[in-house]
Simulated scan of single mutants.
Amino acid sequence: MTEKPYDPLRLCVYATIAALAWLLGPIAVVGFALLGFAGYVRARRRGLTRSKCVLRDTRLVLAYLGVLALAGFAAIGWRVYHLLA
């Protein structure tokens, strides 16, 4: 019996997220950060304390995602300010 070849699905997912972020800019950053934040809050409430994310501790992951969301909101505000100025 032959072994199935490795399916690099994650790489396709990462490329798709990068393309959306490139097309939508800070709106995509805010969207993905808030989506991830909501997912980690739910998982933490259900008892997850260690993540497969590089940061490992879910508190660090939540802080990271929160900072990303704030940076995205700041970038949106910056763009709107410059559009109206």
Rank of each mutant, 00 (worst) to 15 (best):
L68M: 13
G36C: 04
L68W: 08
V54Y: 02
L62Q: 07
Y40P: 00
D57M: 14
R45Y: 05
A75M: 15
P5E: 13
P8L: 10
V54I: 13
G31A: 14
R10A: 15
Y14V: 12
R46G: 08
L84F: 12
L62D: 01
R45C: 11
G47E: 02
T16M: 09
V13T: 06
A69I: 09
A43K: 03
V41I: 15
Y6G: 04
G77R: 07
F37C: 01
L24D: 05
T16G: 13
G66D: 03
T49P: 00
C12M: 03
R50A: 08
V41N: 00
F73D: 03
V30T: 06
L68G: 04
S51D: 01
V61E: 02
I76G: 05
A19E: 10
A19I: 05
S51F: 08
V67I: 15
L55G: 02
K52Q: 08
W22D: 09
V80Y: 12
A28D: 03
F37I: 09
A75R: 12
G39T: 08
L35K: 00
V41F: 01
L62W: 07
G77P: 06
Y14C: 13
R56A: 07
V41P: 00
R45T: 12
I17K: 01
A33L: 08
D7H: 08
Y14N: 11
G31Q: 02
I17D: 05
I17E: 09
A18V: 12
Y6V: 13
T58H: 12
L60T: 09
R50Q: 10
Y14T: 06
A38M: 07
T58M: 10
G72I: 11
L65A: 03
A63C: 13
R45N: 11
L35T: 03
L70D: 04
V13L: 13
P8C: 09
A71R: 07
A75H: 06
R45V: 13
V80H: 09
M1P: 06
V54S: 03
S51T: 15
L68S: 05
W22A: 15
A19R: 12
A18G: 10
G25E: 07
Y81K: 11
A63V: 15
L20Q: 07
Y6N: 11
I27E: 10
L55Y: 05
L62N: 04
T58E: 03
L68A: 10
